[in-house]
């Protein structure tokens, strides 16, 4: 019944071909098969946001998406975004503002924030808080995270104008 399935996808701009069990989540596939361990698994029921990755340009829960569903898709993880430099400003802001403590939520938080920054660099603090409200952070109390996202947004707006 549960026979393995061939999948091909682009992960962080690299072509990936693998055989996967249908039940393997995209998050586990990324971590265990591709050894990209920056994507974290925090709850496996879609609530905590630690496993957030990009699938065809949009953030999704890696634990609620199957690896087989990513067949033919483009997947981006924190490693890919780091490599490309796309969110270097946001990462720098997280470092400067100490917006990560234990760092377990951080990759998911960064991917989530990146989507808002791309869509709406004028987002208010309240909008930032709402947008990241599906990402658990147990360490920071969120203020530093909101500060870092806000300062990045303001800088991007400043550069654009």
């Amino acid at each position: 019944m549960d026979k393995a399935v061939q999948v091909s996808m682009s992960v962080n701009s690299e072509a990936v071909n693998r055989t996967v069990e249908p039940r393997q989540s995209l998050a586990d596939f990324i971590r265990n098969e591709l050894e990209l361990t920056g994507t974290h698994v925090g709850c496996e029921h879609g609530v905590c946001g630690a496993c957030t990755v990009r699938l065809d340009g949009q953030i999704v829960r890696g634990c609620l998406t199957l690896a087989v569903q990513a067949d033919g898709c483009t997947v981006e993880t924190i490693e890919g975004l780091t490599e490309s430099g796309e969110i270097a400003d946001l990462q720098n802001a997280f470092v400067t503002r100490n917006a990560a403590q234990c760092g377990f939520c951080t990759p998911g938080m960064l991917l989530t924030a990146a989507e808002l920054l791309a869509a709406d660099p004028g987002a208010s603090r309240e909008e930032i808080r709402k947008h990241i409200s599906g990402n658990y952070c147990r360490c920071t109390g969120y203020q530093a995270v909101v500060d870092a996202i806000e300062s990045t947004a303001r800088n991007r707006l400043g550069e654009a104008s």
Binding site: M1, E44, H45, L66, Q69
Partner: peptide
């Protein structure tokens, strides 16, 4: 899959086949 996969990941449901 946002509800289905959550219940399957907790083994609260276990369909034999998923039709995507």
């Amino acid at each position: 899959g946002q509800s289905l996969m959550a219940t399957m990941n907790m083994r609260l449901s276990a369909p034999e086949i998923l039709v995507d």
